[in-house]
Design a protein around this nucleic acid. Sequence first.
DNA 1: GTCTATAAATTGATAGAC
DNA 2: GTCTATCAATTTATAGAC
Lengths: 212, 212
Amino acid sequence: MPTAEQIAGPRDAASGRARGSYAKSDATRGAILDAALEVFAQGGYRAGSLREVASRVGLSEPAILHHFRSKSRLLAAVLERRDDHASQFIDEVPEDGIDAMHGLVALARYNASEPGVVELYCTLSAEATAPSHPAHDYFVRRYQMLRHAMFVSFSNLEARGLLRPGVTPDLAARSTLAMMDGLQVQWLLDRSTLDMAEDLRAHLRRLTTIEI
Amino acid sequence: MPTAEQIAGPRDAASGRARGSYAKSDATRGAILDAALEVFAQGGYRAGSLREVASRVGLSEPAILHHFRSKSRLLAAVLERRDDHASQFIDEVPEDGIDAMHGLVALARYNASEPGVVELYCTLSAEATAPSHPAHDYFVRRYQMLRHAMFVSFSNLEARGLLRPGVTPDLAARSTLAMMDGLQVQWLLDRSTLDMAEDLRAHLRRLTTIEI
DNA sequence: GTCTATAAATTGATAGAC
DNA sequence: GTCTATCAATTTATAGAC
């Protein structure tokens, strides 16, 4: 899985922390990242301000920039942290195709319980379609990775004869990724009338013959 | 179809133009709207500046604000103009379900030929999931309208026995809208490896039994 | 590690001349 | 209808005291 470090340059290789910081300040860094996720989640990266982040965490703007050298590096750290946390859903799926399908539905259900994360990725991925966006390369790599992981899963199902006629692993991967993204946009605009996990499950049932 | 006027308040009811302007300045207004679409398309509404719009059209910022009283009203005018232009694809679909399906594929193919429009709606719809966004209500209404139009089309197919077993008009409408949106995000991030119209066609073939 | 103070740039919008 | 000049607000980031 590609880390978010490439967005804003290298950091301390061993700890993943900025050089010179110790365990004591990790709590502060964590609080800043929590606040930054909220701020970037509603309105995206450009609309979110360091002032808003500082206000929520009860610090000054220079204090934020002391822990994360710039706004773009703060965004990189937020994404990196989410990657670590979400890897339990993503990294373990490719082994067995059937487990992978259940993992995708579980991911959709988990996402529905964390609106902030959905807002973050939904807003940022659209904002980052602009090549000049600091997270553009990150999202290009992320989509390549996700599409490849799904391709492997659907290939596993294809080898076991569990794909419906006319469904190829490549098409299944693209369409499933598109379905998850599109459902998120609709869900964010009207969270009452849409069950992301249930609609994703129905989609996967039309691609495969397994019981989901 | 809901107009974009509600974003920034009422305008002259008869002409759709700002009060007091005449045919002569319509060319200028059109040029401004063309430039504004480009600017808002890459990066969204908040990241786009009036200065950039003015620069592209060869006018000063106050000249822009003379024709459109504020930045949010400029955005409303851009969306209103696209609504007018895209209505040929949307407004005429509900009559016959089969024609509607072909219309959706044609719309996807048309969108692929106008990257700027895809960027505009893709970026804005994600940005506008924030309730405070000036175009939030517009996009909520837009999705309700699109979902309803598709529901009518799929209901027509259902009545003629053209939906596959287990597919309801409601689910088909939600999933098709999600598919179109999700494909656009992937396409914007990597335009070479994805054919939006072809993937949408495959999706519709798994929902219905008609030849598309 | 956190602060105040401030720089330097950009923003949307207004006033008023022509 | 378009301009110059300007305002007031906001932004990221830095300098330096504590």
